[in-house]
Design a protein around this nucleic acid. Structure first.
Length: 306
DNA sequence: TACACGTGGAC
DNA sequence: TGTCCAAGTGT
């Protein structure tokens, strides 16, 4: 859960998740959709699928026990270089080189690494490796990440409180604010779509399941037109995508949602039908129990508030 | 190697 | 409103 996600964001999801599946056996036996319902809103949904697959493999091939070897851990789905090292260090107290974004920043400042990220990752990893202790490596790994998260912060680091201030080359030069250097990232393209929120007189909304690969895989959505790259909208052919013949009313404004690599702008249309169409109808009161990504919740909210 | 893959908080 | 970026991984 913590991959590319802050502790503050993860905490409530973790608590709900661990209550639902307290053991590896429970998780291995769960349905993916139930896992996605709890994961909904957290993002990077493939993590949930890979975690589920890892649980099943651990159950089937490892007698329900995590291996303590990094290379073996690395073979499990969703466990990459960082997570394998973190498990080895924190769970098994092995001297693994645990390098996350925090550690990269600490090393870049400590050793004054001028090379920009992400190219500098290999260099920073090598520098971090020189500091891994043989004594209490698990505590060291967590202390180093916490140092980055709470003291050696991206902006306005608390250098005066830093236990490493006398060793930090960036601090010595008063340049802690400019490290780590980063390559400028390119602007996100804008995609546009028309979304159709179909409601019925019982307070239900029509949803459908997204494909099992790609963006928001296996999650639920309201029907939308294909997501165009930049053309004006709504386009006439978008209305070939309506889920039912009905009187469609345009909701005011545009729903704008920022994904990791593009921005989506959705014009929302709504309609209310009386008769029951086929399809998956979900009570608006139960939307928080669905595998509904944030962007779709935002679109439905726009329709209901207009 | 570079890109796909979500979301929200801080400033 | 825009930018950064967070306990990264898979392809």
């Amino acid at each position: 859960m913590l991959q590319q996600t802050t502790v503050a964001t993860v905490t409530p999801y973790f608590n709900k998740f661990i209550r639902a599946w307290p053991t590896l056996t429970a998780l291995a036996g769960a349905d993916l959709d139930d896992i996605l319902r709890v994961w909904a809103g957290l993002g990077y949904y493939r993590r949930a699928k890979l975690l589920h697959e890892a649980a099943r493999i651990l159950q089937a091939d490892f007698k329900g026990h995590f291996p303590d070897d990094e290379a073996v851990l690395r073979s499990l789905p969703g466990i990459g270089v960082y997570t394998a090292a973190a498990i080895a260090a924190i769970a098994f107290d092995k001297p693994a080189n645990v390098v996350d974004g925090n550690v990269e920043r600490v090393m870049a400042r400590l050793f004054l690494v001028d090379e920009p990220l992400p190219h500098a990752k290999k260099t920073l990893r090598g520098l971090a490796a020189t500091l891994v202790p043989s004594r209490r490596p698990g505590d060291y790994a967590q202390a180093l990440m916490d140092l980055g998260a709470t003291v050696c912060t991206p902006r306005a680091p608390s250098c005066s409180a830093c236990p490493w201030k006398r060793h930090c080359r960036a601090f010595a030069l008063g340049k802690e604010g400019v490290f780590p250097r980063r390559r400028v990232q390119k602007a996100k393209p804008i995609r546009k779509t028309t979304a159709f929120v179909l409601l019925n007189d019982r307070g239900d909304v029509l949803l459908r399941r997204r494909p099992s690969h790609g963006l928001l895989a296996n999650m639920m959505e309201v029907p939308t037109s294909p997501w165009h790259k930049g053309e004006a909208f709504p386009q006439e052919q978008d209305f070939a995508c309506t889920p039912a013949k009905a009187v469609w009313t345009k909701c005011p404004g545009v729903v704008r949602h920022v994904f990791s690599h593009f921005i989506l702008e959705a014009v929302v249309f709504k309609a209310v039908v009386r008769r029951k169409h086929s399809g998956t109808w979900v009570s608006l009161a139960d939307l928080d129990k669905q595998a509904l990504p944030s962007v779709m919740e935002k679109i439905i909210r726009r329709a209901c508030l207009s």
